[in-house]
Design a protein around this nucleic acid. Structure first.
Lengths: 217, 217
DNA sequence: GGTTTCAGTAAACAGTTGTGCGCCGAACGC
DNA sequence: GCGTTCGGCGCACAACTGTTTACTGAAACC
């Protein structure tokens, strides 16, 4: 935010190879996990010498953390738009699931990265993803708080709801990804399940009472 | 299942080092992911020569697949017992969350392994876990189908419900694990969120209608 | 136009890795 | 008791790893 890229030809070229490193890393991540990717493997894919890597990142982990911001940044805007959209529950659910499906189709590597490294072997990346998803859940909670249905909800309950939505979104995205590479049920089945689950949540939401006791059926 | 261990002293010793290999692998997995663990690293931890590894497993991946069966086998029995238990929703939820918490406290390495490798870099292990969780979801669906609330549910809806429970269980277990190592919110907060989420699902379940249209609020 | 900056290089460093080979020696079946 | 089985060992192999060093040459600055 402080130093926007000076448009000198040199920094421009530097930014280019930096991008190439990030892209190469992301590409290599399709078949292995970050902790098993070698620095040399990345530079080899880009076509530069191993030592040049250090001009851009301290570590492979460092590169990973950068990828986190990138990957989740794009998702952020997509979902935010999808949620704010005003319509009845059914339409909103369809839109949301459709948005996730489209995002996965357009940026498969990004969500593969996030899903794989969310609980992966590199602590720094793990916490970076966790922090982002936290912020994310908080934001979703705030959006949902503005709904009529959320009247009287406690902050903890709203927070819980946000987490539920975010977790569900990540799971759905992961399922779509598996579908795309033929590793699981086909896309339309995944979409169906995702819609059903959102409907389930939506129903639960509508009949929620913030105090602890369940209503005597 | 076919060849139960012959109780000769030699096979007994073989089983012992095999166990040691599995345990060592599991232990090493606390800080890295399977794809980055070296065969030598494991044998070194056990105290045998690298070549001896091949007497027990073809691969590190092979060892991983074995770990999957072990880790999820134990969880299987725990949850099955927790679900079948008959009581009102509130109690059942408390019991379930408590059971998960206890399991994580007793077998942290197992669930860490499952969560980490569920979307990890080793394809064989990934699919093994996926298959197990599938069977698992199916079974949960069948148990839930016996509830009074499930009258009139379509098979797809029941299946969806089973998946929802299983996914939630895995997520909760993972959250408990993070809590245990101080990487996230403390245990009682995790438990609270988990209970709320189960309550949400339970409410949605109770007001479910298997046909597509949502009831006009 | 001379000087400084700096992305990328080449080479060397000491480790590490997976895997194949032949051999041992203790427990085994008979 | 004897011949066989077989878990584990030592060693060698070629390939690979992350990191440091001193360097080059073109773009940037003034």
């Amino acid at each position: 935010m402080s130093s926007s890229t000076p448009h000198t030809q040199r920094d421009l070229q530097k930014a280019r190879t930096r991008r190439a490193l990030l892209d190469a890393g992301l590409a290599l991540l399709e078949e292995q996990s970050l902790s098993s990717i070698g620095l040399r493997e990345i530079t080899r894919a880009v076509g530069i010498s191993p030592a040049a890597f250090y001009r851009h990142f301290r570590d492979v982990a460092d590169l990973g953390v950068t990828l986190v911001e990138e990957s989740l940044g794009s998702l952020h805007t997509v979902i935010r738009a999808g949620l704010t959209e005003r319509s009845d529950d059914g339409e909103r659910i369809d839109h949301l699931v459709g948005a996730i499906a489209r995002f996965v189709r357009e940026h498969p590597e990004h969500i593969r990265f996030v899903v794989r490294e969310r609980h992966g072997g590199v602590a720094a990346v793990r916490t970076a993803i966790g922090a982002q998803l936290d912020r994310f859940a908080q934001e979703v909670a705030e959006v949902l708080a503005r709904d009529e249905v959320s009247r009287g909800w406690s902050p903890e309950d709203l927070r819980m709801l946000g987490e539920t939505y975010v977790d569900h979104m990540v799971m759905t995205a992961s399922a779509f990804l598996e579908a795309a590479q033929g590793e699981g049920p086909p896309e339309h089945v995944v979409a169906g399940t995702a819609r059903r689950q959102l409907r389930l949540i939506s129903l639960g939401r509508r009949h929620w009472t913030s105090d602890r006791a369940l209503p005597a059926s």
